[in-house]
């Protein structure tokens, strides 16, 4: 029972982490390798506002998300826009930005295990005999709401439809009067906010360290590759597969092996089904 409940929680953590990456890729075809850095930067920003400057939680969270959205948009506007369509350059440039942010944070003194965000609510409840703390319940709530809201947005609103159409063929979208650069900018801002939101709800469970940023990036990429790049439904399914696989690994083999799960899963899926779980044909239908 414990494995089931904590497996679900772990899966939703994966989904939260991958959501921003999947959204950016689904709309703009940009692999944002700075995703992990945005995540960790949002954590440190919130920490600074909350505990460094003593602001209250809502203000700190909103300020952090606004800043992180601005950074995401600026990265697109001033850098990625120039290399759109050159995949290798997109990866190198976004990874470089990510490294710069993360190592910059380290340089600025955010080292060691002294940084942590407070939980939103203290206390635990018992679900079927298993103790679960409120923070994890909040993660489930936020995760499920975001998954549903984003799915509804991309599949059942006209704006979402236009964004999905753009992902299918940018040239055609341009000819039909859509400013695809603006849409990509919005996508990156939104994706960064999602990374920040994930950080703010997940990070109270542990410490904020720069290294976490790398793990987050690897896990986000693992989820998206396994689910099929650009596939929303695939990403959610992949989150659950990875979430439970990692949980079982920790239980059976040992906690130090948990980061191997994502990497191993990437290798296995690339051998068995390179286009991801939801195959190419399906992928076209399910793109964000």
């Amino acid at each position: 029972m414990g494995i089931l409940i904590y497996g679900i929680i772990n899966s939703i953590v994966f989904a939260l982490i991958a959501m921003g990456f999947a959204l950016v890729y689904g709309i703009s075809r940009l692999p944002n390798f700075a995703h992990g850095a945005f995540y960790i930067l949002a954590g440190f920003l919130t920490y600074t506002f909350l505990l460094g400057l003593g602001l209250n939680s809502p203000t700190s969270i909103i300020l952090s998300l606004i800043i992180i959205a601005g950074i995401g948009a600026a990265v697109y506007r001033f850098l990625l826009i120039r290399i759109r369509g050159m995949e290798a350059s997109e990866i190198i440039a976004s990874l470089a930005i990510g490294l710069a942010i993360m190592e910059g944070l380290r340089f600025a003194g955010f080292r060691g295990k002294t940084y942590t965000l407070p939980v939103f609510l203290e206390g635990t409840v018992r679900i079927a005999g298993v103790p679960v703390d409120f923070q994890r319940l909040i993660i489930i709530g936020v995760g499920v709401v975001l998954i549903v809201v984003l799915w509804l947005f991309t599949h059942h609103t006209k704006v979402g439809l236009a964004l999905r159409a753009m992902a299918q063929d940018e040239g055609a979208a341009l000819m039909l009067g859509i400013d695809t650069d603006f849409a990509a900018l919005i996508a990156l801002a939104l994706g960064s906010v999602l990374a920040g939101l994930a950080a703010i709800v997940i990070l109270p469970l542990g410490n904020i360290t720069v290294e976490t940023g790398y793990d987050i990036l690897i896990n986000a990429i693992a989820v998206c590759i396994i689910g099929g790049l650009g596939s929303w439904v695939g990403a959610v399914i992949a989150s659950f597969i990875l979430g439970f696989a990692q949980m079982l690994t920790v239980y059976i083999v040992g906690a130090q092996w948990q980061m191997v799960v994502g990497l191993l899963a990437i290798i296995l899926i690339l051998i068995a089904r390179p286009s991801g779980l939801l195959a190419r044909q399906k992928e076209l239908e399910e793109r964000v």
Binding site: G171, L174, M175, G177, T180, D181
Partner: peptide, 23 residues
């Protein structure tokens, strides 16, 4: 930019058709 020209009222079809296949 192409989208600006399209919004001015000049539009085109593509030689290779580019419909949104899944819609």
């Amino acid at each position: 930019q192409p989208h600006k020209i399209a919004n001015l009222g000049i539009t085109r079809t593509f030689q290779i058709m580019r419909p949104y296949h899944s819609l």
